[in-house]
């Protein structure tokens, strides 16, 4: 049951993500992205991370998608860009490589017989203390440094994008 759900939702997440980049209409792209976020949320659920799954839906499928759709509307990108480029050789080669890579990655996990190291988190621990407690405990102890550096990463992203987007002579 779980495996079926995993394969189904994983496959649908891949297909919807592909539709994001293949759709000619930007608004359609954005809507496919919402769908892809939902399927990813299911994948988190299958990993027993209900909290992350809910965050994924509230923050990404909800808030961030609203911003993206607003931006598309403000920039007036709704027109279909009907570019009928001829299929170039490089595109065919790239597609072939993609298919090969896909199957290589698919078979990578097959045939292992060795138990990998296990982290400290167990199902019982999650049951007992709740997901948020376990998650935040690790976020602010073992993973404190990356957590702090991510804040700098986000600041850098904001500063850079604001500078590149703002008008005026430069």
């Amino acid at each position: 049951m779980e495996l079926t759900l995993l394969i189904l939702c994983g496959g649908l997440a891949v297909i919807t993500s592909l539709m994001v980049i293949l759709a000619r209409n930007t608004v359609h792209s954005a809507l496919w992205m919402v769908a892809s976020f939902f399927f990813m949320a299911v994948l988190y659920l299958l990993l027993r991370m209900e909290f992350i799954a809910i965050l994924q839906i509230i923050v990404y499928a909800g808030a961030i998608m609203m911003f993206i759709i607003y931006a598309i509307m403000m920039l007036n990108l709704r027109q279909e860009t009907a570019d009928t480029e001829p299929v170039r050789k490089s595109k065919v080669v790239g597609l072939g490589m993609l298919v090969v890579l896909f199957f290589v990655l698919l078979v990578l996990g097959v045939g292992r017989g060795i138990e990998a190291l296990k982290g400290p988190v167990t199902d019982q621990m999650m049951e007992k203390f709740g997901h948020v407690a376990v998650l935040s405990n690790f976020l602010f102890s073992d993973y404190l440094l990356p957590f702090e550096v991510v804040s700098i990463l986000l600041t850098a992203g904001i500063v850079g994008s604001v500078f590149l987007a703002k008008k005026g002579k430069a």
Partner: peptide
């Protein structure tokens, strides 16, 4: 000392430099 840290540090460096490369907007 951790692959996660390598990735976060690499992204901090890269994102800053993506923006820096486009600083001559004209």
């Amino acid at each position: 000392g951790n692959l996660l840290m390598v990735f976060v540090a690499l992204e901090t460096m890269s994102i800053s430099i993506y923006a820096l490369a486009g600083f001559q907007k004209q």
